[in-house]
Design a protein around this nucleic acid. Sequence first.
DNA 1: TTATTTTTCGCAACCTTGTTGCAAATTATT
DNA 2: AATAATTTGCAACAAGGTTGCGAAAAATAA
Lengths: 138, 138
Amino acid sequence: MEASIDDILKKNQLSVTSSRKKILELFLVNNGALSHGDIEKKAASKFDRVTVYRTLQAFLEKGVIHNIPTADNSIRYALCKDDCSEGHHHDNHVHFICNNCSSTICLDNVIIPSIKLPKGYTSTQVEVVVSGVCKECK
Amino acid sequence: MEASIDDILKKNQLSVTSSRKKILELFLVNNGALSHGDIEKKAASKFDRVTVYRTLQAFLEKGVIHNIPTADNSIRYALCKDDCSEGHHHDNHVHFICNNCSSTICLDNVIIPSIKLPKGYTSTQVEVVVSGVCKECK
DNA sequence: TTATTTTTCGCAACCTTGTTGCAAATTATT
DNA sequence: AATAATTTGCAACAAGGTTGCGAAAAATAA
């Protein structure tokens, strides 16, 4: 397990440091989305606040994580699937936010139906955020 | 025109003040979404920053405006259509963000297709944010 | 392995964004 | 016009996020 974390970092041209390993591990263990606050709570005792910000930014730039738009505009990040990395995020997946436990989940298998826009509009990306009750809380 | 602004405020049980009139007017003139920053830039010389916040909050509570989730998590507000007001926003419309001019538009006429969630998930709200190029910029 | 270069970290300081309490001013009500 | 109820602006604060820079840690070269 240790090795695979290092590999992910190297594959994305990120130098391997203890803070990056730790934060990446948090994403792998917690298989939902994390807010900056979540990460700070779980790892901030070990790292500076600024380091967490910079690490997330580096992960974003390299396509390791992506951010999720939420109705309350709190920023959340989630791991990208493998095909995310090469510059162009495929990003066309559904995000689900549970109103009860407020966990955020990427539903990669849910297909987004095509949306018919009015004349003159061109779409390059579609973000769908569904809120409701997740299967753990039902 | 002046009269109609007053009417909208009264209809929504908001006392008519100069700041509310001015901010509501901004939304009416600018028929897209506005961020708090936009409003501050356009009206802050006249009003205190806090007043803008409280006005937007009041508008939100009364259902005059609603907020829009964006990919970069900047908060944007847009006027609600008439059927928004009664507590339950209908909210099921598509928001479009132009990558070029970065204006945000409510596409009220675009129908959101129903999305099939995995077993165990219940949906109460679906937000769709499409980004691309708007008809002005194409 | 050691030396050198490059990158990252942590600290402090700062900026932006948003909130709260309270007295003064403005609206609504009578 | 007088009173009651809201709203405003100020100041002060809190949270969230950024920047510069020397110290520390990684990566690279020798």
